[in-house]
């Protein structure tokens, strides 16, 4: 692998891992506060799975540059995080959290399905492993979107509000990183442009069948992973507070 490809792959793996980590963090904020015991358990499963995926992606990066996944997660500054903005948004209500999880799962399942054929074997293996869990996530979150969309007037209103707020942000999932083209050319990662059409088709159909309307104006659509919302700094300040509290600590 030449240096240019390697650097591009490191950047991509970091972005993948950061997405999963921050999403897992937001999901985990529900633990102990869910609408019913069973759903508290269900969302905690998803949070663990996403956190596990983050660990796998950081781990893969580590094989390329020797970086320490825990240092990346707990001692890196906000400006160096490359997650998309969608996952940073505060957890909101149950509709907001489940809709975001659905939009993300639909994207992730598609991406992984393609990435499991990557020419870079270690990435193909990780993608295949993660895909198993994502299939269940997608069934779970699809079911929730349908039930809340078609449930009561209130649940429909809340879902619609979540969709109006998130639709523009979700488009960022399909904006390639600078330099990602070289990875696509090498067959290491799938082309996001192609996946986006399938994602739009699936999600649009499911959202509409669930009694929801796609926003006419998608609103703000982030285009660069160098940019973040105002929420990331405080999210990380909290997440990293223990790890940063003792500069001497080598092990936690």
């Amino acid at each position: 692998m030449n240096e240019q490809v390697k650097q591009a792959l490191i950047a991509k793996l970091t972005a993948l891992a950061d997405d999963e980590l921050i999403l897992a963090h937001r999901d985990s904020e529900w633990v102990g506060h869910g609408p019913i015991l069973e759903e508290d358990i269900a969302l905690a499963n998803i949070a663990q799975d996403e956190l596990g995926h983050a660990t796998l992606w950081y781990g893969l990066r580590s094989t390329l540059d020797g970086s320490d996944p825990d240092r990346l997660a707990f001692l890196r500054d906000a400006a160096e995080f490359h997650n998309c903005e969608l996952v940073e948004l505060p957890k909101g209500d149950w509709a907001f959290t489940l809709l975001r999880q659905y939009l993300f799962d639909a994207y992730e399942a598609l991406w992984l399905s393609a990435a499991k054929d990557s020419t870079y074997k270690p990435l193909a293996e990780v993608a295949a492993k993660i895909l198993r869990e994502e299939r269940f996530h997608l069934q779970h979150t699809q079911a929730w979107v349908e039930r809340l969309g078609l449930g009561t007037e209130e649940s429909n209103r809340r879902m619609q509000a979540a969709l109006d707020a998130q639709w523009g942000y979700a488009q960022q999932l399909f904006v390639p990183l600078e330099g990602e083209g070289v990875l696509v050319a090498e067959g290491i990662v799938p082309d996001l442009g192609g996946l986006k059409q399938t994602w739009l088709l699936h999600t649009t159909q499911h959202l509409q069948n669930s009694g929801l309307k796609l926003p006419l104006q998608p609103g703000y659509q982030p285009t660069s992973r160098q940019m973040h919302t105002e929420h990331l700094w405080s999210l990380l300040a909290e997440m990293q507070s223990t790890a940063r509290w003792d500069a001497e600590a080598k092990v936690w």
């Binding site: 069973e38 358990i41 269900a42 269940f136 069934q139 039930r147």
Partner: peptide
């Protein structure tokens, strides 16, 4: 047992609770 609203939801929930 699990508390759930409909048959498919119950099955998803059973998996979430008892296949951890």
């Amino acid at each position: 047992s699990v508390h759930a609203a409909d048959p498919f939801h119950a099955l998803l929930t059973a998996r979430n609770v008892f296949a951890r």
